[in-house]
């Protein structure tokens, strides 16, 4: 990669969440990945955001109350 193609930490920070969301095009994603492979600070930042997101994703699961189970059973029985 040429010096011109390299990106700096502030650009990585600005695009990091979009990178983690899978919203960047291939070329920009590759440049960020090259940077993360070499920059400990940005790598740590990316790992922190990933870890925080994993914790948030755990909130997507919650045992349904009995009232909802009964309601769903009644709905399914009608189909």
């Amino acid at each position: 990669m040429t010096e011109q193609e390299r990106i700096h930490c502030d650009e990585v920070v600005a695009s990091l969440l979009e990178y983690l969301d899978g919203e960047l095009d291939d070329a920009r994603r590759a440049r960020i990945e090259d940077h993360l492979a070499e920059c400990r600070g940005c790598f740590s930042r990316a790992e922190f955001e990933r870890a925080l997101r994993r914790r948030l994703q755990a909130l997507a699961t919650e045992p349904p109350p009995d009232s909802l189970k009964r309601r769903l059973k009644a709905i399914l029985d009608e189909f």
């Binding site: 699961t61 349904p64 709905i75």
Partner: peptide, 26 residues
């Protein structure tokens, strides 16, 4: 069911509304 209710609860912040949302979705 666990994920439908969990996500519905995060969207609505209300248990009764989450149950309604899951039921309507189904």
């Amino acid at each position: 069911a666990d994920r439908l209710y969990g996500v519905a609860l995060r969207f609505t912040r209300n248990r009764a509304a989450a149950e309604d949302l899951v039921s309507e979705t189904v």
